[in-house]
Design a protein around this nucleic acid. Sequence first.
DNA 1: TGCACATTGAG
DNA 2: TCAATGTGC
Length: 459
Amino acid sequence: MNIWWIQRNIRLADNKTLTAALQEGNGLLPVFILDRKIYENISTISTKDKFLISALNHFDKALQQLGSRLILRVGNPVDEIIKLAGEVDAKKVYTDADVHPALIRQYNQLGEKIELNFGEQPCIFPFSAVKQKNGKPYQVFTPFSRAWKALPINLQLFQSPDYLPSVPDIFSVTLPVLSHLDTFPAEEFQAARKLKSFMDGPIYTYSDSRNMLCKDGTSFLSPYFRWGLLSKRQALHAAFDAKLNTDDFISMSNCDSWINEIIWNDFFQAIMHFFPEVLDGPFRNSMQNLEWSDSAIGLQAWKDGLTGYPVVDAGMRQLRNTGWMHNRARMITSSFLVKHLLINWQKGERWFYDLLIDGDPALNNGNWQWAAGTGTDSVPYFRIFNPILQGKKYDPHGMYIRRWIPELSDVPDRFIHTPWLMTSVEQKSCHVQIGNHYPLPIVDHNAARLRALSVLSRR
DNA sequence: TGCACATTGAG
DNA sequence: TCAATGTGC
């Protein structure tokens, strides 16, 4: 009997770990070990954890259709898997390789007690394949992506099994069946369906429409990548096909833009692999001792979507309400926390990680270091998003703002990004009192910009 | 994957 | 007058 320890590739199609475990032919025990904190708080579960629980429930059903089932246990993965191995007399464990140092410690502990084999890797290519000529890992995205693109790529996908070995009659924790997640139904076939519909059109205009807050121009696939309901291989395969299916040069380059995002995913996984210390602080040492503000009021206003800057607040409320945020809004809100409020980016990283249903430690950290300008390859300190102009540019009619900030729903387009500029008569006519129903800006953009420049330029 | 402000040159 | 371009933060 082989244990298939499922960590982050919760799918049947194109699954290298599953394929490797099945090849042995000695029986297969699909196992997921759930964090105790999630299990004990299941009655007050966050949207983020709901996605995982829902995915596990659906995956169990999919396994049952093939004659297997999911064995779910709660607690420390190393202890639980050793316990399970004893129950079913398993000699080998097959699992997904992750880059997080805490998980790597678990692999080392488990590997001392039982034979541990890795199937799925975090990136398209092995880490050793994408390195500089001098053997050192890349620290900058563009050269990394150039080397990545130059490698020969094999996108042969692994077949879904037609049936699976049955599972012995052992205990499995039962999870509650949760209400359906509208935007992100946590099922493998839904991920495939979303991928297909993105490739059928939106990918060809991705470069521009991905930035429009009011449009659904992004692929909405991030939660599926996070938990592996979809593989990066499957996605690349589909994107390469989409590129072949057009002879329009601009459409092709739009496909490349989206493919680039998958390369960013690989890049940040590689950074976490080679430099796990990024989890504890800035990649660049010179950014180590910045004089961050410890304003609890500022941080709370940011979290609550009450900064007084509509586009920032809309993003933060979308996050809190749905567990997901538009990518452009992630850039605007993270820049605002770091540059306008001068609050340590690690507080934002934590908040995003706790709420985002696509929250992946490597990507979340990489993107925050990028936004804060603390990574090697990141935004320069003087690049400070103006939340008013960003709003005007990417949400010109305030549709995104009105969707998430109902207080502002009657504000005319002219004032939707600067509601505080309305006279009290104008405010009255659109049923909002700025400073009462919706806050005044907690910082003045120009003053905050100058403060950020002066603090950050000293590095 | 920024922005503000200055300069330039066409009309 | 204004869009296009250049430049420093």
